[in-house]
Simulated assay, not measured.
Amino acid sequence: MSENKTLNEVDVRDDIKKGMEPFKKIMEAAEAVQPGGQFILHAPFNPFPLFKALGKKGFTHESERIETKQWKITFTKADEEA
C-alpha cells in the first residue's frame, strides 16, 4: 500500500502584488494535505498570522528567506495517532 503524500506548492507573490487576498487559496491547499503531509508556500514576506491559523489545524512550519521579497514556508501536518 503506497502512501499519498503529494507535496503541493502555492505561490501567492503575484496575488499579493495585484492586491488580491490569498487566504482562501492557502487554506484550500492546507485542507488538501493528508496527516504527515506537507505543502510549500511562496510569499513576499514571512506570514506570521498564518502560523497561528494553521497551527490550530495541526500544522508546524519552517520558514526560509530566499531573497529580499521571497520566503519559502514549508507547512507540515501532524500525523494522526491511531
Rank of each mutant, 00 (worst) to 15 (best):
P22V: 07
A53C: 04
I40V: 13
L41A: 01
G36C: 12
R65T: 04
P35T: 14
M27C: 03
L50N: 02
F23K: 14
L50K: 00
P49M: 11
A43G: 12
F51D: 06
I66T: 06
G55T: 09
F23C: 07
F39A: 02
V33A: 14
G37L: 13
H42R: 09
I26T: 01
H42C: 06
P35H: 06
A53I: 07
V33G: 09
P47S: 06
L41S: 00
K72D: 08
K72H: 08
Q34T: 07
I40H: 04
R65H: 04
H42L: 15
K52A: 15
Q70G: 07
I66C: 04
E62I: 03
Q38I: 05
G55A: 07
L41V: 01
I66F: 11
K52I: 14
T74A: 14
P22K: 05
F59E: 04
L41E: 00
V33R: 11
F23Y: 15
E31L: 12
K56C: 11
A43R: 09
A53T: 12
L41R: 00
P44D: 10
Q38A: 07
F51C: 02
E64K: 12
A53Y: 05
R65Q: 06
W71I: 01
K72Q: 05
H42W: 08
P49D: 10
A43L: 12
P35M: 14
Q70R: 14
T68R: 13
P49R: 12
F59M: 05
R65Y: 05
F45L: 06
E64I: 03
P35Y: 10
Q38G: 02
Q38F: 07
F59V: 05
G36A: 08
G58F: 08
V33Y: 14
R65I: 03
A29P: 04
K25Q: 13
K56F: 09
F23V: 11
I26D: 01
E28Q: 09
A53F: 10
I73E: 01
G58C: 06
E21M: 10
E64V: 06
F23M: 10
G58A: 11
K72G: 05
A32L: 14
P35V: 13
T74H: 07
K69V: 12
E62G: 01
I40E: 13
